[in-house]
């Protein structure tokens, strides 16, 4: 057994890496600088890190380059105006900004996918950038990094199902059609993967506390 492996077996178990902790703290500090001092440099720094990721997500969904940049720009302007609503105890910035991007993307689909576009002023974004109270405190800042490690521990079949749903954006029916697996099997696989992640996340947090 290597030293590194034996370290992970310590009674304390999980230790978040310094790097990931500082990334989460760094984001929270930038958000605070925007909220309190209207610090444009902080927004620019966040933009540099998250902009290409969000643009990549949109383009992987089939959004064109220009539209993807328009959506990302809208999202970053929203980060600027809503920064004081960000609460690092409720969700990480990565999750917060992902939700905003998801909302803008669906909003875009709604506006451009139908024949009868109404007054654009009326067709406001479905704004759920506030985290509803029921979701409060569920995820701490370093959770994202723990989660990433936990995904790697899933079975190969589970990982594949999760990837198809979240990275290839396929519905369960599409996954079933593509893999030849019965719909019920796809559901069970994704459900069990998410449940396993949830249980493991709760355990990890217990260890950290």
């Amino acid at each position: 057994m290597t030293t590194e492996q034996s370290q992970t077996k310590r009674p304390l178990g999980f230790t978040p890496s310094k790097k990931s902790l500082s990334a989460a703290k760094r984001d929270a500090l930038w958000l605070a600088a925007i909220a309190e001092k209207q610090d444009a440099k902080a927004l620019s720094d966040l933009f540099e890190i998250y902009g290409p990721k969000l643009k990549g997500w949109l383009m992987a969904r089939g959004v064109g380059n220009g539209t993807a940049e328009d959506i990302v720009q809208d999202v970053m302007i929203k980060v600027w105006t809503k920064a004081e609503m960000f609460d690092p105890a409720k969700a990480s910035f990565a999750t917060w900004v992902y939700r905003m991007t998801r909302n803008k993307w669906i909003d875009h689909k709604r506006k451009h996918g139908r024949m009868d576009v109404r007054d654009p002023e009326l067709m406001k974004v479905i704004a759920d950038d506030e985290v509803p109270s029921a979701e409060a405190n569920f995820m701490s800042q370093e959770s994202t990094d723990i989660l990433r490690a936990q995904i790697a521990l899933l079975t190969e079949a589970q990982q594949m199902a999760i990837r198809m749903a979240f990275i290839e954006f396929k519905t369960h029916k599409q996954i079933s059609a593509e893999t030849g697996l019965p719909l019920g099997t796809v559901k069970t696989r994704i459900r069990s993967a998410i449940q396993a992640l949830k249980v493991n996340m709760a355990r990890q947090r217990e260890k950290v506390l």
């Binding site: 992987a60 992902y98 995820m139």
Partner: peptide
């Protein structure tokens, strides 16, 4: 939904990022 949204946000890192146009950040600021 929150847990799975966190999961989705985390999995963004598995998707290839696409560089921004050079002027985008400046224009936004």
């Amino acid at each position: 939904a929150m847990f799975q949204t966190e999961l989705a946000a985390c999995l963004i890192n598995e998707i290839r990022p696409v560089p921004l146009s050079p002027l985008l950040i400046g224009e936004t600021l």
